[in-house]
Design a protein around this nucleic acid. Structure first.
Lengths: 250, 250
DNA sequence: CCATATTCGGTCAAAATCAATCATAAAATA
DNA sequence: TATTTTATGATTGATTTTGACCGAATATGG
């Protein structure tokens, strides 16, 4: 087996399980421990993974390879459609706020359709991808939250208070009639709320699987912000549309 | 068998398996190892495939080519050693500034040796990696420069003026006796200069290949900031050490 | 806290692969 | 036909990869 084959197997396993043990790789590749160690080293050198004691762990890549992560990532096509629908709402010369989260990230490839945008985002991953797509981007300063790679804290709040956006696009961990739009981290919730307040028009993007999911902190009620989502059942639509405007991405 | 036929077979196999071993091609084509080597060379020259040790790989591979980015990264071991040496200078509980650039990035894995660090960086890539390694990180706000994914502009300058660092670690595009430390972009140079001014102790990290390279804007003279680099020749050391303190990573 | 078991990084020699060269034979050209 | 060009296969020494080994570093369980 060739070096490249082995390394691809390692990366596949990583996409699949997020973590992989060195010893599990030995039967999978037929290579020796030493060789696999070297492979892990090489892959870490080009930032494809993070070595840990006993194996390696996935590093959530900046511009994730759509083809590769297809299996791992869920609702890719839904998110793509939602991203495109949302991006179509943007007009040339606007200033827009992009929240963190994968769904929001799917907007970025479609943003290049528009000229002279200025994007403000609190997500380091989004920022990296926006740079790849050559979009004018500004990052407000803040504390970096390791788990989501989003900027949070008093500092960013203070900064955002001085800014105003034509449109803001928010992600969410769940939405329901009773709880509204919710997310686990209150600090991130505070930023979402503020971004909504500072924008002429805000939208929440979420695939339909998040319906009736409730997380810890609410950042908006359904009435506050319209929802862009994929195909919902008729029943779900009739319930939700009493409370908010729904756009279905097709 | 004609040359064209053979190469066609190679490309077919490549389409089929994404990777092909040289030895598997010998029975398939009936040609000798030397001939097939030449074929692979030819096909690589016209970008039909990517040669790897033991065979060849599809160019339009589903998976990105690890071989490519791996080979592209130069002076990896030197940078690792420099990164480790620099990281060893850090003490627990310190506040440090990390510049953008790959050499600086190699410090990050070694930073986790220290407790309770706070890292300020103007590089989105660094920030992402720091998050992977769970290091306390703060990003000053600024305009995102697409090419280097570094934050620049008046805003970040203003922010950094209010901060003070125990140590600052800077990258450079070149260093020479006459020109000092230089980098192409004046905006990035301004940030480097400011970071030096706002720190108790600053260091420039650079592999020895940058010696006598000169870029557009100087951000410091050799006298201003000590240099951490890898093995230099005795002559180079004797020249440089007249002007600055040199630490050789071993 | 210590003892034990893994895991790690480095070194080494063997094996595989590579690039370069050379001679031969077929094909093309004169 | 004679000569050049081209493709091929064999050979060689250099380079790369690999697996095994070992002491050091790191987890694990009491």
């Amino acid at each position: 087996m060739l070096t490249e084959e082995r390394q691809q197997i390692i990366l596949e396993q990583l996409k699949l399980h997020n973590i992989v043990k060195l010893h599990d790789l030995i039967p999978l590749t037929g290579a020796s421990e030493s060789t696999l160690r070297r492979d892990l080293q090489d892959l870490e050198n080009c930032r494809k993974l993070l070595r840990i004691h006993g194996g390696a762990q996935n590093v959530i890549s900046l511009h994730e390879e759509p083809a590769l992560s297809q299996k791992a990532a869920v609702h890719i096509n839904e998110k793509k459609m939602i991203g495109q629908t949302a991006a179509n709402l943007v007009q040339n010369h606007e200033v827009i706020f992009l929240d963190s989260g994968t769904t929001i990230q799917f907007m970025i490839p479609y943003l290049i359709e528009h000229n002279d945008l200025l994007v403000i985002t609190n997500s380091v991953d989004n920022a990296s991808m926006l740079a790849d797509y050559n979009v004018n981007t500004f990052l407000p300063g803040g504390k970096l939250k390791s788990s989501t790679k989003a900027l949070v804290g008093a500092n960013i709040i203070q900064t955002l208070e001085n800014y105003h956006f034509d449109r803001a696009f928010l992600g969410t961990n769940g939405f329901s009639v009773e709880a509204g739009y919710t997310t686990p981290d209150p600090e991130e919730a505070a930023i979402k709320s503020l971004a909504i307040a500072q924008s002429n028009q805000a939208y929440v993007l979420s695939d339909s699987s998040k319906f009736s999911q409730v997380s810890f902190s609410r950042f908006a009620t359904l009435e506050d912000v319209p929802l862009i989502t994929d195909k919902l059942s008729d029943k779900e639509i009739s319930i939700l549309s009493k409370y908010t405007k729904i756009t279905e991405a097709i």
